[in-house]
Design a protein around this nucleic acid. Sequence first.
DNA 1: TTGTAGGCGTTATCAC
DNA 2: GTGATAACGCCTACAA
Lengths: 333, 333
Amino acid sequence: MTIKDIAKETGYSLGTVSRVLNNHPNVSEKARKAIMEVVDKHGFILNVSAKNLKQSQSENIIIVVKGTFNELFPVMVQRIQMFFRETRYTLITEYVDEESDEVTRAREVCLEKRAIGLIVLGGNKENFVKGFDRIHIPTVLVTNYAKDWGFDNLSSVATNDLEGAKKAVEYLLKMGHRSIALVGGTTGSDTSDERRIGWEEAQKKYGLKPEEFGPEEKGRYSFEAGYKAMDKILKSGKKITAVFALADVMAIGAVSAISDAGLKVPDDISVVGYDGIPMGAYFCPKLTTVKQSIDKICDRSCEILVDCLENEGTSRHEYIPFDLDLRQSVKEI
Amino acid sequence: MTIKDIAKETGYSLGTVSRVLNNHPNVSEKARKAIMEVVDKHGFILNVSAKNLKQSQSENIIIVVKGTFNELFPVMVQRIQMFFRETRYTLITEYVDEESDEVTRAREVCLEKRAIGLIVLGGNKENFVKGFDRIHIPTVLVTNYAKDWGFDNLSSVATNDLEGAKKAVEYLLKMGHRSIALVGGTTGSDTSDERRIGWEEAQKKYGLKPEEFGPEEKGRYSFEAGYKAMDKILKSGKKITAVFALADVMAIGAVSAISDAGLKVPDDISVVGYDGIPMGAYFCPKLTTVKQSIDKICDRSCEILVDCLENEGTSRHEYIPFDLDLRQSVKEI
DNA sequence: TTGTAGGCGTTATCAC
DNA sequence: GTGATAACGCCTACAA
């Protein structure tokens, strides 16, 4: 079943059928009705391949997800998919490893799928600076702030990670803590770098000197890494009263390690996380955390992309507000 | 850049270039080399639209996800995407609401995208029986067992939910519990029906009569619903010593409610979950649960689909083994 | 307002 | 082993 068949059946020509199907003007109401009737009757669907071929472009949007360990990403991908559900765009997801160059891969996939838009989850500046000048379609970087990276087809939507972390650590300081361990972060991740700086700045602001900062233990964002990092700190014998974890999943892992060591949260050690995953509110103790508005971040990202695609909107860079969610895992001392 | 350009530049004809690009026989090694060289030099990529148009079929595989509340699904979708990453197939994800007819929607999307394969996460029998006879491409239903549904283009991969639940509840009974509440389940979900039956059968096996079964409280698979359901049971005043939650997220919600009620797990109430989400191992107390092999379920599903697609494999129905993961949330009484 | 025809990039069927 | 050539289904000038 092709538009030719529809044409034959309605008595109209190919051109008219095509115009109707694409909502073009200059079609009589009568023709439109007659044609749509037959289209509906047969459940006819346009052949996208033929259309794309003719127009030499697709309606594909690529989502590149960097790193499969971040537990937030699957939910974000889902949210983005939901956003585009009723649109004419087709979303194609591509996962790249933590260590690979997401920009180079993104370019390949965009070329291959002849994409018209790109969304990147979890990219880092280095790769963008190196290779993004070869990507020319509207792009939104989610979870990073790319204002100063110098690309005018690149937008970004993120939480202000530095401020979020700073606020969290300031809260711990306000509650009397002066030995605040840092758990988490991988080299090459801008996000964790920012959060780490927030941790530093808060301590400085409260008059601590770098040598007085709490111990640090790196790790990727996972329960297991949080557990291990905390375990290491505990076994090091360094005295701490609080922990700032760069992700909720790490915070939960850390609490688990503290608990296994026979200590209690928040009585012996206070813990603050980052992200605001739903689970945190049901954890025991309920996790105090920096809550990112994941849904809003995703929605804004999509809105901006659509605007760039359809209204020739210019690229934008936005911070989405966060909340410090005070719950039960911090004690005043 | 089209194959025409490649032809011109190499001096060979369109046909030869096409043959090289598609690994067809009857091409001299010399021609193959010369052509590939130019292809690589320009980073030429075949126009999939043209190819699909000509062959009047795509290489699209649709994943239909039913219900956006199941926290397992995003991870499963990701796993499936990873499986197909380096293949020629393009995955397209479609989310449908809990209440809608996933089969009808699946059919629409398959038609629209001219898909050659279909994967359904979380469908239920009723809709399949009603509408699946209109879908003719190889399909794999994940998380349900569809052997007796009578479709020969439908495969399925699942955990034996009845047995899993039964084993979990038997364990509670073995530990001395005789009043075991059931938390969770939505009407119309085959999966939760099966798990519920397992709960019943185990109790029967231990000589309990239906009127002696613990209280039940329905709810969808979420932290919040688990919390609310547990809260309701607690407030009902019914005496229970254990809870079987139909999903780990509900179990965690339930523990949270128990904890908020001033009770302790497992000292006052024992809890068993279902699923084996990573989080369970880091929860306090560590959650005893029926661990499904999510990764294996996904991988087998993909393997079966590929086999049906490429080797004309026949449809199959498989149960993937589960494990009862004994941790800390159950006490012997 | 409607019809006609050319071409988008590829594959497949011939003939050579 | 290779080269022409005719589709595949659609869109879009352009003509009527």
